[in-house]
Write a protein that binds this DNA or RNA. Structure first.
Length: 333
DNA sequence: CGGATTTGACCCTT
DNA sequence: AAGGGTCAAATCCG
């Protein structure tokens, strides 16, 4: 069995505890006088909690699939045979490793400003390795989310300068951010926009500048298959035209179809639908800094989920506090 | 002094 | 065995 590090165990316990508390809350909500919306909300939170716990136990993105098909409570692999910490066969270990390698992965090509070659994307990353890659002129740098230990965020990214043009860095993201970026870090995102406005020469901001949230040219994902399977009606524009400048991701549609959401939930969740290009900081920066700050500090994982799973509206981002008490009147009054 | 980076070693896959 | 990805001790830096 792959060893579980201290912080992982801590996070695991926290997540399982939260799942337990939420289930208790759900129990109280089940009854003739309670709204189905609040139950659904709790169910989503519980699923997200177990999703993170399963991720730590090497179910990797499979847990995400589990979450995506919230209607069918069937994890990809049974958790039978005692505690998760118990010994497992080598084969099981290898399977787990393979699953981990299938976590969401997508690549962006970013033209970087001089001095900062890591592609500031509003998240805070911590470098944990660098490797010379065969046939590449530049080493590949490995980053993971700064909040990995604290919040168990498993997002990582690899940054490699292009051989042909050192001013272009290919950034491969892997895994979703499950962390909450602090306001201070959100201001780093602000800095990101400011940097674009003030420091970069205009010619550096043209078509190759593909920062986070921009699903246009230069962006590719290896998870389209999964997404297609999960949300057949969901698609990214493969070659966006100018007329698609204000394109709305209707990630709620599949949920409406599957009757996951009641009308009240939809009304609330619709607030999370947004014109996607506003997040691209596209060619002509349309956002004010206050807008940008609002967006980046918004505690949703909408900002980093091209996989199109339910994390798009994962309200569990609201808190990580095991003592969190959910008051439905706040949301569904 | 605490957090971030560097870098050689180790592990896993092919 | 080679190459890619991660770990963790050493080092750096504010």
């Amino acid at each position: 069995m792959e060893k579980i590090r201290g912080w992982e165990q801590e996070t695991l316990v926290k997540e399982l505890h939260q799942g337990y508390e939420l289930t208790k809350q759900l129990k109280h909500h089940i009854g003739p006088l309670t709204s189905p919306e609040s139950c659904e909300f709790l169910v989503h939170k519980i699923i997200s909690t177990y999703d993170r716990a399963l991720s730590i136990l090497n179910f990797g993105d499979s847990a995400g699939e589990f979450q995506q098909v919230a209607g069918t409570f069937e994890p990809p692999q049974p958790l039978t045979g005692g505690s998760p910490m118990s010994e497992a066969s080598d084969q099981c270990h290898k399977d787990a490793y393979k699953k981990r390698k299938t976590s969401p992965r997508w690549t962006e090509q970013v033209r970087v400003c001089s001095g900062k070659g890591t592609g500031d994307d509003g998240y805070t990353w911590r470098k944990y390795g660098q490797k010379d890659i065969l046939g590449a002129n530049f080493p590949r740098a490995y980053y993971r989310c700064t909040h990995r230990h604290v919040q168990g965020c498993l997002a990582t990214k690899q940054v490699q300068k292009s051989d042909a043009d050192p001013s272009i860095a290919e950034i491969t993201y892997r895994g979703r951010h499950t962390c909450i970026q602090s306001p201070a870090l959100a201001s780093s995102g602000k800095e990101f926009a400011k940097q674009k406005k003030d420091q970069c020469q205009p010619h550096l901001l043209e078509e190759n500048q593909i920062p986070l949230f921009n699903f246009g040219t230069g962006f590719k994902t290896e998870e389209m298959g999964i997404m297609e399977e999960t949300f057949p009606s969901f698609s990214f524009p493969s070659s966006p035209s100018k007329s698609q400048n204000v394109e709305t991701i209707s990630f709620l549609e599949p949920l409406k179809e599957k009757n996951f959401l009641g009308s009240d939930s939809l009304e609330f969740l619709s607030l999370l639908e947004f014109p996607i290009d506003n997040f691209g900081f596209g060619e002509d920066l349309q956002l004010s800094e206050s807008d940008l700050s609002e967006i980046i500090s918004a505690p949703t994982s909408v900002t980093n989920s091209p996989t199109g799973n339910l994390d798009f509206f994962s309200l569990d981002q609201v808190d990580f506090d095991p003592n969190f008490q959910f008051d439905t009147s706040e949301f569904f009054s």
